[in-house]
C-alpha cells in the first residue's frame, strides 16, 4: 500500500479527498488508478500525449520522479507520492 497526497487546489476533482491509497507497482500506475477513480482530475495532470503537465510536479518521497524513472519509477511499500501544483497566492 502506498499513498498519493492530493494538494488543496486539485481536491475539487477528488471529492475533497486529501489522500488516495493504491497498491500499484509504479508511480504511473498509481496515478492511473487515481484518475480512473476521479476522471476529471486526469485532464489537469496529463496533456493529450499523457505527459505530466509542466505546472505539476510529482514526487516519490523527497525526489522528483523526473530524476528517477519518471512514471515507471517503482513504488515501495508505504511510500508517499506527492502532487505539487503551481500556486501563486500571496
Amino acid at each position: 500500500m502506498s499513498y498519493i497526497q492530493i494538494p488543496t487546489p486539485l481536491r475539487k476533482f477528488t471529492q475533497n479527498q486529501a489522500s488516495f491509497e493504491t497498491n500499484a507497482q509504479t508511480v504511473g500506475q498509481s496515478l492511473h488508478e487515481l484518475v480512473t477513480q476521479y476522471p476529471d482530475l486526469g485532464k489537469h495532470l496529463h496533456d493529450a500525449a499523457q505527459k505530466l503537465k509542466p505546472f505539476i510536479r510529482v514526487y516519490l518521497g523527497e525526489e522528483d520522479i523526473q530524476y528517477l524513472q519518471a512514471e515507471a519509477t517503482p513504488v515501495p511499500e508505504n511510500a508517499v507520492i506527492s502532487i505539487i501544483p503551481a500556486i501563486a497566492g500571496g
Binding site: 487546489p9 503537465k53 509542466p54 510536479r57 501544483p85 503551481a86 501563486a88 497566492g89
Partner: peptide, 15 residues
C-alpha cells in the same frame, strides 16, 4: 526549474 510554464488562466484561482 520547478515550474517551466504556468497553469492556464483560471485553473488555479488567486486568493
Amino acid at each position: 526549474d520547478l515550474f517551466p510554464t504556468p497553469p492556464p488562466p483560471g485553473l488555479v484561482p488567486s486568493c
